[in-house]
Computed example of a mutant assay.
Amino acid sequence: MRVAYLTNYYPKISHTFIRREILALEGQGVEVMRFSLRGWDAELVDPIDQSELEKTQYTLKDGVAPLLLNMLRCMVKRPGPFWKAVKTALAMSRNGVRPWPYHLIYVGHACRICRWMEGKGVTHLHAHFGTNPAEIALLIHILGGPKYSFTIHGMDEADNGGRLAFDRKVGGAAFVATISSYTRSQLMRHVPPDVWPRLKVIRCGLPAGAFEEATTEPSKSPVFLCIARLSAEKGHMLLLESFADVLKNNPDAKLVFAGDGDLRPLIEARIEALGIAHAVRITGWISSDQVRAEIQGSHVLVQPSFIEGLPVVMMEAMAQERAVISTYVAGIPELVQPGKTGWLVPAGDSDELANAMEASITTPHATLIKMGRAGRKLAQERHNIETEVARLSTNFAETC
């Protein structure tokens, strides 16, 4: 079986879950071609990501001109499918997130990828995210390409669900992977019940080795770790307010932000304004090994997200036997169980977040260890990449 993967940006530091999925598929004997719109100039810190870059073909790497040339070529060779694709793209632009010229460009991406796949024996196309990659996958299918599927993750799809033409995208798909039951339920709001059976819960996962590695005990001093892109929806600014309160009674507490992003200047300014620079560290983008080291140096993971799908970093922390503090958002309660594997608080409530952080400090060390072990067991049961990819591969094979 040979499948093609389509993403908007690949490889990407915050999208290691896509890379793991592709490599796990290849480990199970599936050949995978990689297509992406962007990502050839990404600053990468992980050697595996750098290797993936060399395996990926980019539709925009040499500008828009090749897209236009491929559109002309397709219009001449396949006029019927071409004009059907154009009509479909324009229909999806109505009330869309982006205006109609973008959707015509998506036709260009589809035409170019179709040409790349000619004669390659691709049996299935899978896209990640229900935004423009899913639209391009649909257009490729209309142009004569293989059957397709796509994975939705939650944030962009939830923000813009009514403007992403899910009725067309799901209606044309062989199946749709959703990363949690909650995510599946949100997609069910936007598509008719007769296509609900196509919506499959196929979770993101970690390789078996992640659960077999030796773990360390939680730090006996309070070290809160937050692993996320520095962006508004991740709740970093709220976390700073809560941590400043916690610090008043726990002067030895530390907070680590592992990641980088557009919000960094604002976060740094707020750290200075709160007078907590001595207790807060921002790592910037770091490799997978460095992430693991930060987890091992922490006593809990804290992810105060406002909107999410289901953060893979929670699985990574649980694999290292760390309890998690997070919010009652999306698929998070499917993994973080209050009193068993961590703490959950209402999103946006700095007082409740501070209370949970205080509770993690006063919880006996032996109890933190017990919670960490329970989290590892749950994550291993639900988020083993080999199991989840086998489900994905089975669905691929059933469409061939």
Results as ranks from 00 to 15, higher is better:
268 E>W: 06
65 A>Q: 09
348 G>S: 14
308 E>F: 06
290 Q>G: 02
154 G>Y: 10
109 H>I: 02
160 N>H: 08
244 A>N: 13
159 D>S: 15
273 A>V: 09
236 H>P: 06
237 M>F: 11
57 Q>F: 10
300 V>W: 09
380 Q>P: 04
164 L>W: 01
399 T>A: 15
319 A>N: 06
68 L>D: 00
333 P>K: 03
385 I>V: 13
184 R>P: 11
344 L>C: 09
314 M>Q: 14
75 M>S: 14
267 I>T: 11
230 L>I: 07
205 G>C: 05
220 K>D: 14
57 Q>E: 13
79 P>M: 04
206 L>E: 05
248 K>L: 01
2 R>K: 11
38 R>E: 06
167 D>L: 15
338 P>E: 03
100 W>N: 00
48 I>V: 12
37 L>C: 06
101 P>Y: 07
143 L>M: 05
363 T>R: 13
184 R>Y: 13
373 R>F: 13
171 G>N: 01
79 P>S: 05
100 W>D: 02
240 L>G: 02
280 V>Y: 01
207 P>A: 04
140 I>G: 01
361 I>Y: 14
75 M>E: 12
142 I>M: 08
357 M>W: 10
213 E>H: 07
337 Q>N: 03
1 M>T: 12
242 S>R: 06
97 V>M: 10
42 A>S: 15
179 I>A: 12
263 L>R: 11
228 A>M: 09
69 L>C: 08
218 P>W: 12
10 Y>A: 00
93 S>I: 08
262 D>Q: 13
78 R>K: 15
303 Q>C: 14
225 L>I: 06
400 C>I: 15
304 P>I: 02
96 G>W: 04
47 P>E: 06
288 S>Y: 09
234 K>Q: 05
134 A>D: 03
312 V>W: 06
228 A>H: 03
256 V>N: 02
233 E>T: 00
204 C>G: 08
339 G>D: 02
201 V>L: 07
95 N>P: 08
215 T>W: 13
156 D>V: 03
339 G>P: 00
198 R>K: 15
88 T>N: 11
356 A>G: 11
269 A>M: 12
276 I>V: 10
120 K>T: 07
263 L>G: 10
380 Q>E: 07
379 A>I: 08
315 M>L: 15
221 S>G: 10
118 E>Y: 09
104 L>R: 02
311 P>V: 05
150 F>T: 01
28 Q>F: 14
267 I>F: 12
171 G>H: 01
48 I>H: 01
293 A>T: 07
233 E>R: 09
331 G>F: 07
356 A>H: 09
186 Q>R: 15
